[in-house]
Simulated scan of single mutants.
Amino acid sequence: MRLRLAILLLVAGCTTEVSAGPAGGMSTGPAPLARLDVVDRGDGPEAWAENLIAGPVEVMLSARGATPSAQPPLPARATVPARGRVLVSRVERADAELLLEVVPGHPGARPRDVEYAWPLDTRMLHVAQGWGGGFSHRDAENRHAVDFAVPEGTPVLAAREGVVMQAEAGFAHGGLDSPEGVDRANFVRILHEDGTMAVYAHLAPGGVHVRQGERVRRGQRIGSSGSTGYSGGPHLHFAVQANRGRRLASLPFRMFGPTGVLRFAEAPVDAARP
């Protein structure tokens, strides 16, 4: 029997209200990474996490308000393989309000020293914002991201081979008038063999050319640059990330660009923001 518990699903920085029952719906926004399914086979409610993407995710199950008795006790953590399903905990109270926090990637990722290829089919090099950039590269997820300014429609290439873990293509607009639009950008996330993930973001409407689960080779076209989401103009936002225990962290990376090896330096912490 499926229980219609009240559930709050926290996914990749986006909070979405859902229901565990078949009538539950998702609000408009980025596609969820996982689904919380609560079932009762006669021995009490079981909270299962179902991974909806083509790469591992880490989840943490907790409760809002009074914490119910559970086995294992809440908060309970689990790692769910690509498109897999894992029992996170058995909860005693059927009226508990459960929360599932989901972060992409395996927490045990061990990054290798890899030289990334130039991710654009162009000889032009214009860094609009680099490591530690004051506009939007101050948080852990983006500290070592780079924004390459290019005309809209520039072919975006895979900088390293891997599997398309996520492909978000449902957004058509961008701009700086609504900061909440940061979660409404078209992007591709590629999982590498060492557990790291490359993010290619702000792709154009109709600018995602790969599908989830597809294996891509280095240099393969995966999209077209654009300005969807919280963006001040056409560019490619590129970052290499890893799950560092229920949080995403961007990693320093080496890249060979149009003019040779690119050398990025992090901006001073006290640099003034524009």
Score class of each variant (00 low, 15 high):
35 R>N: 10
22 P>G: 10
131 W>E: 04
89 S>N: 05
138 R>L: 02
159 A>F: 06
73 P>N: 05
213 G>H: 14
231 S>T: 10
240 V>G: 04
226 G>I: 04
29 G>K: 00
57 V>W: 09
54 A>M: 05
146 V>A: 09
155 P>W: 08
20 A>T: 15
44 G>C: 09
137 H>D: 04
14 C>V: 14
87 L>Y: 05
84 G>E: 12
271 A>M: 09
64 R>D: 11
173 H>G: 02
182 V>Y: 11
142 N>S: 15
201 A>S: 15
232 G>A: 12
7 I>N: 02
44 G>Q: 11
51 N>D: 09
16 T>A: 10
42 G>A: 08
185 A>N: 00
157 L>Y: 08
262 L>F: 04
166 Q>P: 01
246 R>I: 11
139 D>H: 07
87 L>M: 03
121 D>C: 00
139 D>K: 07
143 R>Q: 11
45 P>D: 02
116 Y>Q: 09
260 G>K: 11
94 A>R: 09
209 H>Y: 08
184 R>T: 11
212 Q>C: 13
240 V>D: 06
235 H>G: 01
231 S>I: 03
47 A>I: 00
202 H>M: 12
55 G>L: 06
110 R>S: 12
267 A>E: 15
209 H>Q: 13
136 S>F: 07
271 A>L: 13
156 V>N: 04
238 F>P: 07
264 F>K: 04
65 G>V: 03
82 A>L: 12
271 A>T: 10
145 A>W: 03
214 E>V: 09
89 S>W: 01
164 V>W: 00
80 V>N: 04
87 L>A: 08
90 R>W: 10
71 Q>T: 15
132 G>W: 03
227 S>K: 06
131 W>F: 15
207 G>A: 03
151 P>E: 01
181 G>I: 01
128 A>V: 11
104 P>R: 06
265 A>I: 06
31 A>V: 08
251 L>F: 04
130 G>M: 00
215 R>M: 13
227 S>Y: 08
72 P>V: 08
33 L>V: 06
175 G>P: 06
